[in-house]
Write a protein that binds this DNA or RNA. Structure first.
Length: 464
RNA sequence: GCGCUCAUCGUCUAGCCUGGUCCAGGACACCGCCCUUUCACGGCGGCGACAGGGGUUCGAAUCCCCUUGGGCGUACCA
């Protein structure tokens, strides 16, 4: 076990989204690779917006992706006592102070500053003011450094420096007594012994403030690694209007978790020319050095290609289990004598998603076939009557193996003098209901002798 | 506005640190051909980028500066 300790710290105000999943994944991979510890912490200091449903949804999504954690989940809402203690400590040491400015006053000052073209900052009204009686509402502010430079060496972006004048006295405790993010994140990261903080680069600007708090509280400062954002096709931050952003929505759309994992890791990280990575590969090969600095555009097409790849190469047994669920979601139950593993084998090369596979598998399962209108009109006609009759006769007596049905089919070709296509396509329609389906012999074998004959007879009924 | 930051094909990227082997490689998408019992799979090929301008250098995608463009932040959200 190495000393490396990393964490994923989502706030439970919604489902786990694509960006969060990637951050979690990077942390997970780092921990596994270095045999360190991956901690899950729920940042629910905002009591208003945090919900149990969101926490559950995030946990479920991480589980689906295979991102297991070693410690946690810890809930910040259960650690308020610790935070209050730290606030008091800073107050006692004169490193923080009570501020009685109202939210309205502050908003007005902010607007004025913006108007002047200044960076809106707290002006320090209460910083040096005499203490007042506590029956007036107040927030607690951290006394930030007013001069000097705070810099850190980001493991992804390199050295980043901030002039301390840019940092104002931020609020660490709200007027309702609850602590704020930038304060608790430091306490928890420090108390939980984190050595490296891997998070989205929207936190870069928070880092110098946090470093100042680490120092004020006497904590060791961890290493930071800020992962670039994920953008939509219009280069705007990825959001719902760019399509699905929820991890679980991808499961619902028929994506395999390994496809999402593979896609997410390659968005912003690379390993030479390689594209396909299993979780095991990633644990061996992932490193922060190969993470790029620039934001990446989410490309649904490439994700789809990866999904296609994993379906194509997936274990039929496992896919069959999944297929049964997707089929069930469509209200389709699988007849006992239909071998779903065999169904999967006929569909793996033809399905980009499990949802698509379920659609294509439907015809195997239904008792009464629904014909595609055009196909029926063209291929279930008087012209096919003889073909179907001959085929039924052959199927009744042939050996029901690939070679057997192929031979039976050949017999029909010989008897009618027709080419394969002339017989094949109508048969395909009679058996599957449409003009596109897996190979005829494969379909027949999955369907079984009885079903083939009854479907052919049903087509004959329609003709006759 | 101010601060931080980024910049190679439409997109994800290799190359950049340690200049020449790069008239820039791979992948997705797209286009074409081949294979073929339908639909797919697959094989082969094509299209397509160093943001712009200055330097430094014998030589720059690679180093420096400026410009432009993008992202993030600027909350009693996280």
């Amino acid at each position: 076990m190495s000393e490396l300790r990393v964490r994923f710290a989502p706030s439970p105000t919604g489902y786990l989204h694509i960006g969060g999943a990637r951050t979690a994944l990077f942390n997970y991979l780092l921990a596994k690779k270095e045999q360190g510890t991956f901690i899950l912490r729920i940042e629910d200091t905002d009591v208003e917006r945090s919900t149990q449903e969101s926490t559950d949804a995030i946990l479920q999504a991480m589980d689906w992706l295979g991102l297991s954690y070693d410690e946690g989940p810890f809930y910040q809402s259960q650690r308020f006592e610790l935070y209050q203690q730290k606030v008091q400590q800073l107050l006692d040491e004169g490193k923080a102070y009570k501020c009685y400015c109202s939210a309205e006053e502050l908003a007005a000052k902010r607007d004025a500053a913006l108007k002047r073209g200044d960076k809106p900052q707290y002006d320090g009204t209460c910083r040096d003011a005499a203490a007042r009686s506590d029956d007036q509402p107040y927030v607690v502010r951290f006394k930030s450094a007013q001069e000097g430079i705070t810099s850190f060496n980001d493991l992804i972006k390199g050295t980043i420096s901030f002039n301390n004048q840019e940092l104002d006295d931020m609020i660490i405790q709200r007027s309702d007594g609850t602590p704020t993010y930038n304060f608790v994140v430091v306490i928890d990261d420090a108390e939980m012994g984190l050595t490296t903080i891997v998070r989205g680069d929207d936190h870069v600007n928070n880092t110098p403030r946090q470093i100042l708090i680490y120092k004020a509280l006497g904590y060791a400062i961890p290493a930071f690694a800020h992962v670039p954002m994920i953008l939509g096709a219009d280069k705007k931050r990825l959001s719902k209007r760019h399509g699905a952003t929820s991890v679980m929505a991808y499961r619902d759309m028929g994506y395999l978790p390994e496809a999402l994992v593979n896609y997410l890791v390659r968005l912003g990280w690379s390993y030479g020319d390689e594209e396909i990575f299993s979780m095991q590969d990633l644990i061996e090969k992932f490193s922060l050095e190969n993470v790029g600095k620039s934001a990446g555009v989410f490309n649904p097409e490439k994700l789809l290609w990866l999904n296609e790849h994993y379906i194509k190469t997936g274990e039929p047994q496992r896919l069959a289990t999944l297929l049964r669920e997707y089929l069930a979601n469509d209200g389709i139950s699988v007849p006992a004598d239909i071998d779903l593993v065999e169904v999967v084998k006929t569909l793996q090369d033809r399905s980009k998603t499990m949802l698509e596979m379920a659609e294509k598998a439907a015809f195997y399962c239904s008792d009464t076939l629904v014909y595609d209108e055009k196909a029926q009109k063209k291929f279930i006609t008087q012209d096919q009557q003889q073909i179907f009759e001959l085929l039924v006769a052959q199927l009744q007596s042939c050996e029901f193996t690939h070679a057997g049905v192929e031979a039976a089919f050949a017999q029909v070709l010989e008897q009618t003098g027709l080419k394969f296509g002339k017989v094949g396509q109508p048969t395909r329609v009679a058996l599957s209901g449409g003009t596109s389906a897996p190979g005829i012999f494969e379909v027949m074998l999955v369907l079984g002798r009885e079903r083939c004959i009854s479907r052919l007879n049903a087509a004959l009924q329609l003709i006759g």
